[in-house]
């Protein structure tokens, strides 16, 4: 026998279920008066620095049906590439930008929408700059453990071409599943959970 390492096991994940809104966006689910507002619906204020953008899209299951009961959270750097987090050691992020947002998909249309800013570039582990990106976390009924992916911007061709994470995708025809399409100040980003157009998901 050797000594025990003594590590604990991570609490196992379970699905968020169809009523995730009760806990995470109670006002959206019709429970008013408990919290003033739902957490994560506003990422910016009128002093936030950077280019204002809207991110929107739908989530599709393996049959091509839109999910109307999912919850999407995003996490991103500010316009200068700094995270609003105690673990950010490179400087102080824009105090008028949370970096974190949460949006349920609409109960009728299934669309999610975030009003945010375009993130600056953040260094990869070896110091090379990653392309501007937004981290997404998706939970829903039928999803046993939250799905992690990244949104990149299709109009950042040069930065995307040298992005160390995108470069690691062996099947190059899957790279476009991570690119959001620009339309004025809006970027469209659909997520496909399964099948032909399946989005690249990460084990982070």
């Amino acid at each position: 026998m050797v000594q025990s390492l003594g590590y604990l096991k991570e609490t196992p994940s379970q699905t968020a279920g169809p009523y995730v809104h009760i806990g995470c966006t109670p006002n959206f689910s019709g429970i008013s008066g408990v919290y003033a507002t739902d957490l994560g619906i506003a990422m910016t204020n009128d002093k936030t620095l950077g280019e204002r953008i809207t991110l929107r899209g739908h989530i599709f299951d393996g049959t091509g049906t839109v999910l109307r009961d999912a919850l999407v959270e995003i996490w991103q750097a500010d316009a200068k590439g700094l995270y609003n987090s105690p673990a950010e050691m490179r400087g102080t992020a824009d105090g008028n930008f949370t970096g974190w947002g949460r949006c349920p998909t609409d109960m009728e249309s299934g669309e999610y929408v975030f009003e945010t800013i375009k993130p600056g570039r953040v260094p990869y582990r070896d110091g090379r700059l990653m392309a501007p990106h937004v981290t997404l976390w998706i939970v829903a009924r039928g999803i046993n453990i939250g799905l992690q992916t990244r949104l990149y911007f299709a109009d950042e061709e040069a930065a995307n071409a040298e992005d160390p994470v995108l470069q690691r995708i062996e099947h190059r025809n899957r790279v476009p599943t991570l690119l959001a399409r620009k339309d004025g100040s809006t970027y469209h980003f659909d997520i496909h959970l399964q099948g032909e157009k399946e989005t690249v998901f990460f084990d982070i």
Binding site: D61, G62, L67, R141, I143, L193, Q194, F201, F202
Partner: peptide, 9 residues
């Protein structure tokens, strides 16, 4: 129908 079929990266 809500589970990815391809490996996680």
């Amino acid at each position: 129908v809500r589970s990815p079929q391809r490996a996680l990266l």
